[in-house]
């Protein structure tokens, strides 16, 4: 399977990763090689096989509904790139 520029641009948007003009061909070629690897899966009949999401057939454990967290915003925000008035700052978003 061979990806074109349009597909690479679409993937770039989905992944929020910039692919500039000079990289498009290389990225397209490399991703296409990987998709070729994927195509090896198609020959196998999986009609009666159910998908497996987890290695072990465990079920979800539940946590009691109690508040256990304490306010740690100062420590947690110490690693944040841009904070003001305890808020994380991003370029203006318009609702």
């Amino acid at each position: 399977m061979s990806l074109g520029k349009t597909e690479v641009e679409y993937i770039s948007r989905l992944a929020a990763i910039e692919v500039n003009e000079s990289e498009v061909n290389d990225v397209a070629a490399k991703l296409s090689n990987i998709l070729d690897l994927f195509s090896q899966m198609q020959a196998t009949d999986t009609e009666n096989v159910s998908p497996m999401a987890h290695p072990l057939d465990q079920v979800q454990r539940l946590r009691p509904d109690v508040v256990t967290a304490v306010d740690q915003h100062e420590k947690l925000q110490s690693v944040a790139p841009k904070v003001e008035n305890d808020l994380y700052l991003v370029p203006q978003v318009i609702e």
């Binding site: 509904d65 967290a69 947690l76």
Partner: peptide, 29 residues
């Protein structure tokens, strides 16, 4: 109307000061 969040032990009380009820789990750290 739970006491804590769906996936963490943070309080869901209304009106707390900004990010005081956002744990490392809620922040997706």
């Amino acid at each position: 109307t739970t006491q804590s969040k769906i996936f963490s032990g943070s309080s869901i009380a209304y009106g707390a000061s900004p990010n005081s009820q956002a744990s490392a789990i809620d922040l997706g750290m």
